[in-house]
């Protein structure tokens, strides 16, 4: 049981590491956000689940479940608001990008004062 938890934890930590590597290597903000959000979400879920599987005698699954649910709900929202703010603040996409529908439609100046 403890060995199973250890292996799950190791898989989670590798995903966390790859997420951080993606944040370092990707060429612009939006691609960094893609790597940072996805890999760290599943990575932290696996890391926490692995620790609580390996040490089940502690009996504090409840708080771990709360933390996991919290990560699942807030991580996409924070990256979504950050991507929106970055686009509105005028951060350019990388040169390898194909298209940008949001810029073409120009809804940013409608309604709110900047």
């Amino acid at each position: 049981m403890e060995l199973l938890g250890a292996i799950v934890t190791l898989a989670g930590s590798i995903l966390l590491f790859l997420g951080a590597l993606g944040i370092l290597r990707m060429p612009d903000v939006y691609n960094r956000m893609q790597a940072g959000t996805k890999a760290t979400t599943l990575g932290s879920i696996l890391f926490l689940a692995g620790i609580s599987i390996g040490h089940y005698e502690c009996g504090c699954f409840g708080k771990i479940i709360i933390i996991i649910l919290f990560v699942i709900f807030t991580n996409p929202i924070s990256s979504n608001t950050l991507a929106r703010a970055a686009h509105f603040a005028g951060v350019k996409l990388t040169e390898r990008s194909v298209k940008d529908d949001l810029k073409d439609d120009d809804i940013e100046n409608k309604g709110e004062e900047k």
């Binding site: 790859l18 993606g22 990707m26 060429p27 939006y30 691609n31 990008s97 194909v98 940008d100």
Partner: peptide
């Protein structure tokens, strides 16, 4: 994502 990050020439073709 893991595949794209590890790959030496980051195979992306992004757009909105």
């Amino acid at each position: 994502v893991a595949f794209r990050v590890i790959h030496p020439t980051i195979p992306i073709n992004p757009g909105i």
